[in-house]
């Protein structure tokens, strides 16, 4: 990958350590540990049901792991809610689209600006200059994102009416609008054709290179993963079976076995 990034990969910013999670009797994640470095693109791969999404849900506070801990910039993320974790600087997209269906594209992305918009409801109700100024600045910021994602023509369309691929883009836009330090992207390219995938990769790389945003990405398409990620962690049956640069992962026997469907013991 040609290095055009303006931020060099740094020290660990996010640490998952010895996390275990189960639902009733089902073990989704078992004693999993890995680190995410500042400014890197880290891919999480693994077969269906390996526990990838569950892991993101733990990081972002939607699930509470029964064991282990998650650290972000030296702070424990245990026992805090998703909205507090958003405040810490972690944002995300969801595997099965979690957009605000009845709201327009612009409004969806504006919700991503929530943490930059603090006007009191009375200031909004009475249209105080401060509230109007805040609204104007944030709409402007969202227009930039809309332009960057090349979706200007659907700006005012309710997202529920959009095709799947565009909805995925809007969700990325909403996550970008938060200006979080870390973005967790759960299969942002699922269900897209080659052309759309290439476009999505371009956006993700650009954000990482120009803004230095750390990206944790779940993806099934190996070509994409090997192309854009700095490091890859491989999960299988809730356990880490590989962690390292793409080239190492490609030659890792355990990973090859898991993907070739060799019987597990």
């Amino acid at each position: 990958m040609p290095d055009t990034r303006s931020f060099m990969i740094g020290a660990p910013i996010l640490e998952v350590s010895n996390v275990s999670l189960s639902f009733g009797g089902v073990r989704a994640i078992t004693d999993t540990s890995f680190k995410v470095l500042q400014h890197e693109i880290k891919a999480i791969i693994g077969p269906n049901g390996a526990g990838k999404s569950s892991l993101l849900n733990c990081i972002n506070g939607i699930y509470r792991p029964q064991e282990g801990s998650i650290w972000f910039k030296g702070k424990s993320l245990q026992k805090i809610t998703p909205n507090a974790i958003a405040r810490e600087g972690i944002s995300r997209t969801f595997q099965n689209l979690a957009l605000f269906r009845r709201m327009s594209v612009l409004d969806n992305i504006l919700v991503g600006r929530k943490l930059h918009m603090n006007a009191h409801f009375l200031a909004v109700a009475f249209q105080m200059p401060s509230a109007r100024e805040e609204e104007r600045l944030n709409v402007e910021r969202c227009e930039e994102i809309i332009e960057f994602l090349e979706i200007t023509d659907i700006r005012d369309t309710p997202v529920g009416k959009l095709p799947y691929g565009l909805q995925k883009k809007v969700e990325l836009g909403r996550a970008l609008a938060t200006e979080a330090e870390v973005l967790l992207l759960d299969e942002p390219m699922a269900g897209m054709n080659v052309e759309e995938k290439r476009e999505m990769c371009r956006f993700i790389l650009k954000v990482n290179e120009e803004l230095g945003t750390t990206i944790v990405l779940i993806e099934h398409d190996m070509g994409v993963v090997m192309d854009i990620s700095d490091n890859v962690v491989v999960l299988d049956y809730g356990k880490v079976i590989g962690d390292g640069p793409p080239d190492d992962i490609r030659n890792n026997q355990k990973v090859i076995d898991a993907y070739l469907g060799v019987a597990h013991d």
């Binding site: 909205n83 405040r87 969801f94 605000f100 919700v111 929530k114 509230a131």
Partner: peptide, 22 residues
């Protein structure tokens, strides 16, 4: 305004709303 957007976000998809800091 932003007040109503927060309400509607909670209405349409509360988990996503919470993940955006609401």
């Amino acid at each position: 305004g932003s007040t109503g957007r927060n309400w509607m976000a909670v209405r349409d998809m509360d988990i996503a709303a919470e993940s955006m800091g609401i």
